[in-house]
Nucleic acid binder design. Sequence first.
RNA 1: GCCCGGGUGGCGGAAUUGGUAGACGCGAGGGGCUUAAACCCCCUUGGACCGGAAUCGGUCCGUGUGGGUUCGACCCCCACCCCGGGCACCA
Length: 806
Amino acid sequence: MSYDHKAIEAKWQGIWEADRTFYVHEDPSRPKFYNVCMYPYPSGAIHQGHVRNYTYGDLLTRYKTMNGFNVLSPMGWDSFGLNAENAAISSGVHPRINTEAHIATMRAQIKRLGSMYDWDRELASHDPTFYRWDQWLFLEMWKRGLAYKQEAPVNWCPKDQTVLANEQVIDGLCERCDTPVIHKNLAQWFFRITDYADRLLADIETLDHWPERVKTMQRNWIGRSEGARFTIEVDGGGSFEVFTTRPDTVFGMTFCVLAPEHPLVESLITASETELAAREYIAAANRVSEIERLAEGEKTGVFTGAYAINPVNRRKVPIYIADYVLMGYGTGAIMAVPGQDQRDWDFATKYGIDIIRTVQPPDDWDGEAYVGDGPTINSGFLDGLDMAAAKARIIDWMVENGIGEATINYRLRDWLISRQRYWGCPIPMVNCPDCGLVPVPEDQLPVLLPDIEDYLPKGRSPLAAVPEFVETTCPQCQGPAERETDTMDTFVDSSWYFFRYPDAGNDQAIFDPPKPAYWMPLDQYIGGIEHAILHLLYARFITKVLHDMGMASVEEPFSRLFTQGMITLDGAKMSKSKGNVVDPVELFASHGADALRLYHLFMGPPTDDAAWNENGVDGTRRFLERVWKIAGDEWEFIEREPDDRDRDLLGLAHRTVRKVTEDIDRFHFNTAVPALMVLSNEFSDYLGDEPIAATHREVLRLLLLLLAPMTPHIAHEMWEDNGFGGMLATQAWPSWDEELAREETVTLVIQVNGKVRDRLDVSADITAVQAEQLALESEKIQDWIDGQEVRRVIARPPNLVNVVVG
RNA sequence: GCCCGGGUGGCGGAAUUGGUAGACGCGAGGGGCUUAAACCCCCUUGGACCGGAAUCGGUCCGUGUGGGUUCGACCCCCACCCCGGGCACCA
């Protein structure tokens, strides 16, 4: 009987669904395992990145189920967002229609992969039954002072009169009309994530099963730095505050720099000799993005015409405007100490500003700015102190003189959550001319997103053009009022959706706390590395807020995080826009879901980017054909007692159980698959030469159990055909017998001066003394020693002996 | 520019973390099966070279580049080159 993957895969997908094998409920008698793949954006069709993600996720669902866990693996849709809105603008079709069609298509494709979910818990962020709880959460944030409105710059296209997302700005131009984009201030909604900066930073240390690199990125993103904040007077009146991590170097301040957006700039440049140049410079800075400003190779700036007074020595120093200082970090103004900061050094050199060293560099120092520690010099009462002592002393001085104090600064900024977009969750606030900002009462939620036909923003959110939506009454005074027309960042949806799966149908509350209390935290969260910072940080933040509200039992949502690499083809990320996609749906038909899943597991380390090989699925398909033959052929068994060949094959099978188990536990799927290939190759050889039925049956049983989470359909079919009994998906994961798995002989490598010169087969329990003796007795080794003095022998039994001569 | 990763055969990768570099798969070459082709099966496959001549034996080089540490380095340290992810409105 040939391997008909279409029939087999359809059959078992039907059985698992009918049997509700992967539909679960809270069960305190069993250990739980909450397993989530980051919910996808419904782009229209699944791509190989999804297949990779869901193959890993489903492998774990099935593996943990076989290991006795109560596994919850849900699926949902991140269905609001810019792409659907852009598609609607160009097609005129409402984003809901496209989005829901995409969800239906992708759901069917995911099911075709054989990836199993508890679909009773399916959710979609564009669904009012979901986003009303976004709005509820927003109101809770507002109540707690964690939501506020403030002016902030946006990318603005003057021709289209619209706000642009960063990705819609191409080389400083609007992607639609090529008009130069400017920055414009708009009133925006923020979540006060900076209030949680310390906790978000400290609790990274509790994330023992997160990739080190993601933790490092998050630490750096939060960017806690200790330093001082102090006031600098402007010569002729006025002052500004600066933040510095190096207050000890203040005697070396030879200029100051303000960000182009700094509020003091206007008064400093007005009527100055350099006013024109300054205005031009500010306008230019306004046109480029923050990244471009920082990427600029050479530092640029312009003199304001004004001078500041160094508070410690009353020295007059010029005040510049430069775009390497950002309004969003610290105070938007710095004291510049070129002797101790390379950016300041570059700037000072370019503009001919004095450089004064305040830290003595080492004697062999030949660099420019010296940022290291050393005795303080040229600094009056700080001279001779080291960095730490000088910092403490100068901060004391600042406090005594009432000009500054020690402070902690974060690079992290508050989370801007408002979007001037249509396809998102409406922010549930009302603007009343008398009462100001008034929250929509909870019993009036959800504020429904109205259907509209024109999605093009015209200065404000498209919702602003819908009078029936905008015009309302103030919940407080009942007078006429206007609704907020901005929608929420889709990261708001994704920062709490995993709390909703445990109680997805609840129409009375965001969730009933005991339900997520059973399932949370996630035992495994799997998604792309591109989410290492923003999504994961926002989700951690909202979890902490829910915890503080008494809603969440945990402070951290994801106890184990796995970040997968991208799929590339011809050196580029596989994506529709690049036109280099390999459609998984075609491979379901030609090779089968099992062969595709196995190729994804096999193709490389899950953490790394993986290059697609168009023949790769052929290889895993061939492997499955061989296993099919092993399981299904009418073998000529003979009757005899088990001998060495049986023991060898059984030993290999037990070593394979051990290897596959260990590899799955450490997410090394790409080495688990070859172990199965080696076993099946040896198995085939064994069957070609007087096999016995008992060995065939036992090794086949183990092989199918190991294949069950990787290639579930074919494994189930073979399990059933061979009459092993019961559903494979719910069998216990096999254990291995250490005695059977033990290898009797190993290869002892003998080196002379680190180079391999001989190999011997030895007993696996050889001692160091025996290994050394064998090595020295080897004729080849004797030839290499060739009468030289043996200085040392390093023995690492049973694998290696190194003879050091000369 | 800043933060974080990564560079191993023709290709994807392995080396259980300082101890046999190249498992397994793809591709390629050769052979078998076949009227023929496909499928399938068997063999070879990092490079240069030496010996022996049926396919065995051996040497040297080799993990981005250049240094270093070590009995021993793909693995640790320093410097450099190249590629990728993120940089707050793609998600």
